[in-house]
Amino acid sequence: MNIFRFAGDMTHLVSVLLLLLKIYATKSCSGISLKTQELYALVFLTRYLDLFTDFISIYNTVMKVIFITSSLAIVWCMRAHPTVRRSYDRDQDTFRHHFLVLLSFIMALFFPDLFTTREVLWAFSIYLEAVAILPQLVLLQRCRNVDNLTTHYIFFLGSYRALYVLNWIYRYFTEKHAGRWISWISGLVQTVLYLDFFYYYFISWKSSEKLRLPA
């Protein structure tokens, strides 16, 4: 474990807590893409299959349980909670995320680290996570006024993988651990997809105005 990866995990945890806070505090999921939440639930379910088979550390197990349960709880909330579900922007959240699942799965079949069930599903989860934010970014562009908690949630969610890229660089130079090119490429693609958002997030912070993505 190094500082970059720990900071990345904490940033990821904060993003989840911010989303839970937003939904709990405002009893609303306006501005949140259910499709992105469903994609993330799928990412965690296919990535943490080893939750019960490979014990790495208490920390690793606890974090996996947190990410799986929180993502499923948020999807349930947005679909079934009587109050929250009414605020879901159903007609704005129209990204065809099934294509992202199909594309990632095909990519995983052709480019896994090893052609085993476990590795193919792991690669699938990595490829899918790289594009999982797309429905949320599209929704953000359509919903003009999005509350601050939502923009902070997206900022932290985007920052965590950028910190993981620093972690891979650090591990490359210190542990001679070349890492996995699947993680490197997907992590970079994932971070690049946020650059546009990061720019407008920084602008809105400097001008202390609400974040507005161009139409």
């Binding site: 990866r5 995990d9 990821h12 080893d50 490979d54 790495i56 690793n60 974090m63 996996k64 990410f67 680290d113 090893l114 085993t116 476990r118 590795e119 792991w122 993981y164 972690n167 996995r180 993680s183």
Partner: peptide, 10 residues
């Protein structure tokens, strides 16, 4: 990579 590297990251 022949061996399956450990998945020690989240």
């Amino acid at each position: 990579s022949g061996e399956a590297l450990p998945h020690d990251e989240l």
